[in-house]
């Protein structure tokens, strides 16, 4: 059994326990403090639907723009023009679309990663693409969701900080994969 597999089993067990334990601890502690748990739960839950109405326009706006951008094939053009430069830093050509798609679309980039893995499951490219996907989250969706839910329109330095973190994740993925898998 490899160390990575053992680590995964341990973390999986913790993840499995977290939610049930959270319910048990919070409800148990609250009952000891004589909180009216059922009433408190429904009172908090009421806000759930308001959030749907608040985030809907933001989520639809960002997904439609990204969906149209993806459908247009503009990404292929950017990939082709960037490919010579990314090869120089040791990034395999077929993982560049993954790096570009990652901040835009979670499902889109996962599909691209699956393509790279499908073509050659144990290749260096497959490992770099996987690491890139696992390193960061979908920046634009998160910005729309989190800021949309409270009606913030002036995002200040959030976009640049998020995109720079994505870039750092991509570069770190290439670097660490070269160190470990080459």
């Amino acid at each position: 059994m490899s160390a990575a597999y053992a680590f995964k089993m341990v973390v999986e067990q913790i993840s499995l326990l977290t939610i049930p334990l959270l319910f048990f601890l919070i409800i148990g502690y609250a009952m000891c403090r004589r909180v009216k748990v059922y009433e408190a739960f429904t009172e908090g839950g009421k806000e759930g639907f308001d959030i749907f109405l608040k985030i809907l326009p933001y989520i639809v706006a960002i997904l439609v723009a990204i969906g149209m951008f993806r459908a247009s094939g503009a990404l292929d053009f950017i990939t082709e023009s960037l490919a010579p430069y990314t090869l120089k830093i040791g990034m395999p050509a077929d993982v560049l679309p993954v790096a570009l798609m990652r901040p835009l679309s979670g499902s889109g980039s996962l599909g691209l990663v699956a393509d790279v893995i499908h073509n050659a499951p144990d290749s260096f490219s497959a490992k770099v693409a996987s690491t890139m996907f696992g390193a960061t989250d979908t920046t634009f969706y998160i910005i729309a969701l989190y800021f949309g839910s409270v009606g913030i329109r002036k995002t200040r330095h959030a976009v640049i900080a998020g995109l720079m973190a994505d870039l750092a994740g991509v570069l770190a993925a290439v670097w660490v994969c070269q160190l470990v898998f080459r």
């Binding site: 319910f23 739960f41 429904t42 908090g44 839950g45």
Partner: peptide, 20 residues
């Protein structure tokens, strides 16, 4: 998102009232 929002916001409210 709505279902999990209701679930966890409810739980969070219980936690807040209990002081946890």
């Amino acid at each position: 998102l709505v279902a999990s929002m209701v679930l966890f916001l409810g739980l969070l409210k219980v936690g807040e009232k209990a002081g946890i």
